[in-house]
Simulated assay, not measured.
Amino acid sequence: MSKTKIFTYVLLIPILILGYLLYDGIRGPILEQRRIAGIEARVIEKLKLLRNIQAGYYSVNGKYAGSWSELTNFINNGKFLNIQRKEIVDSINAQGVESVRVIIDTLGTTPVRDSLFPASTYPDFDPNTLSVIPGSGGKQFEIYAGTIDRNNIKVNVFEIKDTAPVNPERRKNKNEKALKVGSREEATIAGNWED
């Protein structure tokens, strides 16, 4: 066996090891980015669901829920009114102006759970897990409800925020960029991923 062949075989092992380390060094961050994107997609879906629940709570109570027990109780025991609205044109006066009456009739109620979470779409829905952040190991979203003053008018606001972001960029400055829906300072129900 020549020295060249021996030298080639000796170098082959470190070359293979270095090749694997290079491959793994590139593949690792890509897999981590995919994992983070998957968890954030689940968090966003949950925040959208929570936004819909808060909108329903507001439509019934005239304010947003400030605790998980309020939201859970609303889902388990709350009811939406089924309302029918009719507009009746009574007459037209000499100037051609119509007189319109609006009649609002309550036809009944629908349980919130059946309306927002039908069993056909959400077969395994458990309202007790609303506060749990997906992929966090059981940590809870932070929930806030209150009012702000806008042009001397009190406006109801809410904010639901991810307290345990998996993305290192979102954890900077005490979770300043954490995924959230609503705002403590602005009258909005938009999520910060929608900006």
Rank of each mutant, 00 (worst) to 15 (best):
M1Y: 11
T4K: 13
I6P: 00
F7Q: 09
T8E: 13
V10W: 11
L12Q: 08
P14R: 08
L16N: 01
L16Y: 04
L22M: 06
L22F: 14
P29G: 05
P29S: 03
L31H: 10
Q33P: 01
I39T: 09
A41M: 09
A41W: 10
I44P: 11
E45T: 09
L49P: 06
L50F: 10
N52F: 00
N52V: 00
I53W: 09
Q54K: 07
A55S: 15
G56W: 04
Y57S: 04
Y57N: 07
Y58I: 01
G62T: 01
K63D: 04
Y64Q: 04
G66C: 03
E70I: 00
T72N: 15
T72V: 13
F74K: 01
F74Q: 01
N77L: 11
L81A: 15
I83M: 13
I83C: 05
Q84Y: 11
E87G: 00
I88G: 10
V89G: 09
A94N: 12
A94P: 00
Q95S: 15
E98K: 14
S99L: 13
S99N: 12
T106H: 10
L107G: 09
L107Y: 05
L107A: 11
T109W: 01
V112E: 03
V112L: 08
D114E: 13
L116T: 03
F117R: 02
A119H: 11
Y122K: 07
P123N: 10
N128V: 08
T129K: 11
I133K: 08
S136V: 02
G137F: 09
G137L: 07
G137E: 06
Y144N: 07
Y144W: 07
A145R: 03
D149S: 15
D149G: 00
N151F: 14
N152K: 14
F158K: 03
E159C: 10
I160M: 05
K161S: 04
T163I: 05
P165S: 04
V166Q: 12
V166T: 12
N167E: 02
P168H: 11
R171H: 02
N173K: 14
K174D: 14
K177Q: 02
A178M: 01
L179R: 06
V181W: 08
R184I: 04
R184C: 02
E186R: 15
A190S: 15
G191Q: 05
W193G: 06
